[in-house]
């Protein structure tokens, strides 16, 4: 029981950064923009988040720095893809390359430093409940926030007028524009929101997951978040499940090592990446006949005529 509890707690911790980053990207892609720079925005969120928390001693300020860094990175992306109608795939790649370099530069002075990680919730009696106590009532603020965020996104997309407009922009930008909706401005907001979420997801790593910063510590989580959005067929509910599934795969490798199984550690470490490939194949295959669930204008450049 205790082991299972520990496993579940660690799965939640591993899933949270994926869920945060993927939630933001879900909104971005629903608005018809493919931002492949999630990895770059996450690692910048990690570096700036750690720097902010280390310098001020406040996890909250660290998280805000991470959010700001992610949003600032996504603003560069928006300038190019929305303002200058540049190819989104290439720009997203550039954003990742820049983010990895810039975070190394910013984080260089902080490598080897430690902070006090984000506090975990403690409610008397509730947190002390056997088994469920720590899982339900003993997490840090990021975890609760990631869950609130995905619920809010679900309500926003399918229960509000603005959510409907956002989906319309993603599915048919020309019609949405003809109806008078400011396509580029809506997309700009979506991209900035996605950047902020990716920054927060990145900041989670040094602020709560491991209380220190190392360069390239996101280790491909941004790309896995992108795959998660595809896996979830662009639906918030499935995204939630997918993020926890992938978190579980990440944790699996740690626990098989603890069990002393004679499997090369590198094979276990590559599991999340192999799982992503397999899942993408399975999802794409089953969907093949019914047509893609992707927003129809995903990745397409939109240049308004006057």
């Amino acid at each position: 029981m205790l082991l299972l509890e520990a496993v579940i707690v660690s799965v939640i911790a591993a899933s949270t950064p994926l869920l945060l980053a993927a939630s933001g990207e879900l909104i971005v892609e629903r608005a018809g923009v493919l931002n492949l720079g999630v990895e770059g925005m996450m690692i910048m969120g990690a570096a700036c988040g750690f720097a902010g928390a280390y310098l001020t001693g406040s996890i909250l300020i660290g998280a805000l720095c991470g959010i700001a860094a992610g949003a600032a990175m996504s603003a560069i992306f928006a300038t190019l893809t929305l303002g200058l109608a540049v190819n989104q795939v290439a720009t997203g790649l550039a954003l990742t390359i820049l983010g990895v370099g810039l975070s190394g530069l910013i984080g260089a002075g902080f490598v080897g430093q430690k902070i006090v990680p984000a506090a975990h919730l403690y409610l008397p009696v509730l947190t002390d409940l056997p088994f469920v106590g720590r899982i339900l009532f003993g997490q840090d603020a990021f975890v609760y926030m990631s869950i609130a965020l995905i619920i809010a996104i679900r309500l926003f997309l399918f229960r509000t007028r603005l959510g409907l407009v956002l989906r319309a922009v993603g599915d048919n930008h020309a019609s949405a524009y003809a109806l008078g909706y400011p396509v580029l401005r809506i997309r700009l907001c979506a991209v900035l929101f996605g950047g902020a979420c990716a920054g927060l997801g990145g900041a989670y790593l040094p602020l709560a997951y491991t209380p220190f910063f190392v360069s390239e510590m996101t280790a491909g989580r941004g790309w896995i978040a992108l795959a998660l959005v595809v896996f979830a067929s662009w639906r918030p509910g499935r995204l939630f499940g997918g993020a926890y599934l992938f978190g579980a795969v990440t944790i699996l490798q740690l626990h098989t090592q603890a069990l002393g199984l004679d499997i090369p550690s590198q094979l276990m470490s590559s599991l999340p990446y192999l799982a992503t490939v397999v899942v993408l194949v399975l999802i794409s295959r089953t969907r093949g006949a019914a047509g893609s669930a992707a927003p129809a204008c995903l990745g397409l450049v939109f240049v308004p005529d006057r």
Partner: peptide
Amino acid sequence: FGASEILTSLMLVYVANL
């Protein structure tokens, strides 16, 4: 299968490294 080549080709970078 129609899987996005962007994501799969990138994932295999990590696998090759390992």
